[in-house]
């Protein structure tokens, strides 16, 4: 089996987000960037499946500027075999565009499993995996918290849904999007980081795919969320309960 793992370079989850003063977006200059945490879980799952000999090759795909090569390298250091960067100068692409590019890459690569995070922690769209599955007309198992490969070329996937867990069986090829509970990604060891530098990354121009990358959704402005009004400190438990009951009226 061959896995295509799609990874996105995003602002590190520990960075405090700052909205630009001209409201055009959030500050990304001199900000630490990392692989989207949900995509990291996707890489980890593919590597674990390879360790169990369920997967023979792991291809790490990213779509972004040249800097996304770093993100691909961290996937290769975790255990990916080779990388593909679909290069664009555009800082942000919409999920529909990304979905079309992943579909085009999949048409060439013919992966059995396409695995990626359920959402990116920058635009929080939660769409890409579903779009890819739809365009490729293959089944999807989103928000996966457990993944089991059956002998009959199917995957049994437990999904985190509101109020519980749903299990579905999907034929291979399929798309899986990962949720938090699926696994805990490893830290790449220094030798593996060094080895990853030798692994191949193919760089393809986004223009070569014939996909219209024009945005359908125009971001008019980006604002700070409404501030919470400053709170107070209370002296004891009685005062707290009293405030919650009589002032906030939430008890």
């Amino acid at each position: 089996m061959k896995a295509l793992v799609c990874v996105k370079r995003v602002i590190d989850y520990n960075v405090r987000i700052r909205v630009k003063s001209d409201k055009s977006g959030v500050e990304t200059d001199n900000v630490k960037m990392s692989m989207n945490p949900f995509d990291e879980i996707a890489v980890e799952e593919a590597v674990r499946m390879k360790e169990k000999s369920q997967i023979q090759e792991i291809v790490i795909l990213s779509i972004g500027t040249d800097k996304s090569q770093e993100t691909i390298r961290s996937g290769l250091a975790m255990g990916g075999d080779r990388g593909i960067l679909v290069k664009t100068d555009k800082e942000q692409l919409e999920p529909l565009t990304v979905g079309k590019i992943i579909k085009a890459v999949s048409d060439r690569e013919k992966p059995d499993l396409i695995i990626l995070g359920k959402q990116a922690i920058d635009d929080d769209c939660n769409q890409t995996g579903q779009i890819v599955a739809t365009l490729l007309e293959i089944p999807q198992a989103t928000f996966a918290s457990e993944l089991k490969k059956n002998d009959d070329n199917t995957l049994e996937v437990t999904r985190e849904v509101d109020g519980g867990l749903e299990t579905v069986k999907v034929n291979i090829p399929c798309v899986v999007t990962t949720d938090l509970r699926l696994n805990e990604p490893r830290y790449a060891s220094l030798p593996n980081i060094m080895k990853a530098k030798q692994k191949k990354i193919d760089v393809l121009e986004i223009g070569s795919f014939g996909v219209d990358i024009k945005d359908r959704l125009q971001v008019l402005e980006v604002n700070e969320p409404p501030e919470r009004k400053p709170g107070i400190k209370v002296d004891d438990v009685e005062a707290l309960v009293n405030k919650l009951k009589n002032e906030a009226k939430v008890l």
Partner: peptide, 11 residues
């Protein structure tokens, strides 16, 4: 966006 750390107005 960014888990509510910013609010985007989109058209």
């Amino acid at each position: 966006i960014y888990a509510g750390n910013a609010i985007a107005k989109v058209k």
